[in-house]
Design a binder for these strands. Sequence first.
RNA 1: UGGCGCGUAGCUCAGUGGUAGAGCACUACCUUGACACGGUAGGGGUCCCCGGUUCAAUCCCGGGCGCGCCAACCA
Length: 917
Amino acid sequence: MPKAYDPRETEPRWYDVWEKSGLFRATGKPGDPRETYVVAIPPPNVTGSLHMGHACRVTFEDVLIRHKRMAGFDTLWMPGIDHAGIATQVVVERLLKAEGKTRHDLGRAKFLERVWQWKEQSGDRILMQQRKLGASCDWERTRFTMDEGYSRAVREVFVRLYEEGLMYRATRLVNWDVETRTVLSDLEVETEENVQGELFEFAYPVEGGGEVVVATTRPETMLGDTAVAVHPDDPRYTHLHGKFVTHPFAERRVPVICDGVLVDMAFGTGVVKVTPAHDPNDFATGKRHQLEELSVIGLDGKMTEACGEFAGLDRFAARKAVKARLEVLGLARGSKPHTMTLPRSQRSGTVVEPMISTQWFVKMEPLAGPAIEAVEQGRVQILPEEWTKTYYHWMRNIQDWCVSRQLWWGHEIPAWHCEDCAHINVARTAPTVCGECQSTKLVQDPDVLDTWFSSALWPFATLGWPDKTPELERYYPTSDMETGFDILFFWVARMIVMGLHIMGEVPFRRVLLAGLVTDERGEKMSKVKGNVVDPIDVLGGSTLEALLEKATAGGAKPSGLEYLKKTYPEGFAAYGADALRMTLLSYAPAQRKIALSIKRIEGYRNFANKLWNATRYALGKLENSGAVATGKRPNATALANRWVLSRLDVAIAAANLGLDEYRFDDASGALYHFVWDELCDWYLELSKPLLQSDDAALVAETRAVLVHVLETSVRALHPMMPFVTEELWSRLPKAPGHAQACIVAPYPQSGLDAVRDESAERELSELQQVIVAVRQVRSENEASPAKRLAITLEPPDAAAHTLWSAGLAGLAGAVTNSDLTLAATGTKTDAAVDTAVAVAGAYRVLVHGVVDLAKEKARLEREVTKLDKDLASIAKKLDNEGFIARAPADVVEKERARRAELIEQRTQLVAALGKLG
RNA sequence: UGGCGCGUAGCUCAGUGGUAGAGCACUACCUUGACACGGUAGGGGUCCCCGGUUCAAUCCCGGGCGCGCCAACCA
């Protein structure tokens, strides 16, 4: 067995074994008596390559699944890929652009062929990358949101909603992305804050003389102004009520209206230009006053025919031109800087243009009610709980959902427009004649559906709905939905809505929301910043040169490259999937940010190596002994053996609890600390003298405990670190009839695989205190651990004496490399000048032959200072009458006992100090 | 403007009404037969500030300051 663990060899080998042996598969058999546990993966975009966010999803979900699989559930982890409408179309259009073509050159059918072609060649890449992280999905069930069956589900839901009056077509002011030329839902619009813009003022001449000055950040929209509004109570403008102003470019009379909702008297001039066709507030105002909605910006972002001399200009060019013309006409009234927020498209980044357009909408209010109720009643639990408030807030203020998109790549809308009577025929299959006029001139709606509309059906569409499949029967509702909090509205809320409405049942029992993975400074990873850490590089390692090259290719800024050089001067070692997984798990999942640090990954790489070497040690000690892990807790009599089983029990209990309650940090932390701080630091050290004992029964017991504890620890860690644990498990000697592999071995249970033994813990902690005291003296006085020390130990009472004479004395001597003499109970040895006196709990430890008296004095003084500090804080309580009178009796008693012990310790140390002079 | 959250060691973060923790970093010593991807010992904190409740507050409550996210938004 090599001295250091190398994940590069182990990981692909075991993954292959698991997958080929069918160990990831759910049975799917209706008769299987096991309870089910189901997770539907948040499907990554087909355009995507694995990033840290995905790695986080894969890790968390794989941990959940592996834990439940080992715990005996019939587990199904449903994998898949999302067709990602806009993102994918943009990528393929970019490819075409390189060939000097647009999608319009190809036409719709040819273009879609190209997208499918592209999907075939790159679609599986991310699935392969998920495997590298150890994802134990049931791969044979992999679904794509544009599969034939899935499309049927989408169509079915659309038609049903339409039939129920919940899907409707309407002309509204919508968010328009002029770059990709499609409508966006409210959620796809992001606001850029603190943009420095200008507030431009100009005058409208009032009919019959005078003028009113209005202000705007978008001068070009004045071409579509169909009113000027003042506040009805504004005394400055009462003379304008009922008047008209003249539009300087169009031959148009524009009415002055009074509107208390739109106008804020205190802002600007108190007069507002009203452009109903291009502003949400103005749109609402227009409805209130029956104003004309004049569209002046076209879907292509250019000014429309209605704009006269400005027609055809790009919206931003038109802004300049309008301003210039107003200057010429003498109507400009200056401008001032203005801080504002800009709505931008999440996809293209372009400024979103409010436009009047006819689109398909889902009526959300009737659907939101049950979705709120389901959470209120606990049928869906959201963790961390704080998010439920956010969920309610959004659901209670819900707006109708615009679901049509002017794209080619996506689910086609199952609606056919009649060219003769304009009737809209919504149907599951293409109709041949119009249901209204029997005309055969039917044209399918050219739009596709919002990708999130199909995603909303994910938990049941993946299981075969609308067919009544056995899978659907067995695995719906799913168990946990684990995902990033950033898509709570986009996806989770909509899945709950659709699950309840279509299936009549929640889509999952729990929602587990995780934070965003950022770089170690807490900054979002972005190609431009150059701080993207590719999970695959972490697994297999990468040089700084390769990292820089990749960042450069990704378009990183020079400052980003500097950051890379500074932060990762050595590049990455091959840390392995287990190390990355443990690192991600070590952060509290609910944190808003998971600030991933490479140093931390290195720490868990070291942990994997620690576990590897603990096993290496054990295998050496077990060789040819016939000791095997039986899967049953061995009987233990020796203190160290009882103790390690007790500590293992505590760790197992914490691991199970943490895994059940979405506290992966607690679960992984408990096992990490058990393995490193207790198993390796204490038990393995104590086992060395035990295994050298002449007592054959003791040696046999210790071997049995050693192999059991290690094998159980490995099983307990498996969900988190599947690769190294599978490898070690395969090497550990096991009794016949054991499980096929660690991945399907039973998950350890508190009380079964280990058992709490409080007296063993108490007694061993005394041993630890004594050992630490000796080490402290050694470290302070005589650096060399090679020097053998002579020690006298004074036990506080007869019981302690018995314990130590029964074996602890030998252990302590062996571990501290010293000859330990156990003093008779009640002896107070008069310490010689070269003897250091240490106090370990109630024990007095005398270390003889100490050379450096000055250092020993310093050590004692430090100890006394610390005791004084502790005593002062206790005194503050015990001297307080209120504390004695009102604090619980056991708390008071505890403080008194502690004070007594500290005073005794102090007395001992002061006496020792006196000896030193 | 509203909602949610955060402020704890140099850094990244756990945590609790009664003794303040981890990982990394730091200091000293140690290549001991599992492991230098290691061991032993050690240094390091006004738990953001001000009030209140309490015998006792880092924790609960109120206010402030700073920061983040989400939602809304004045042309």
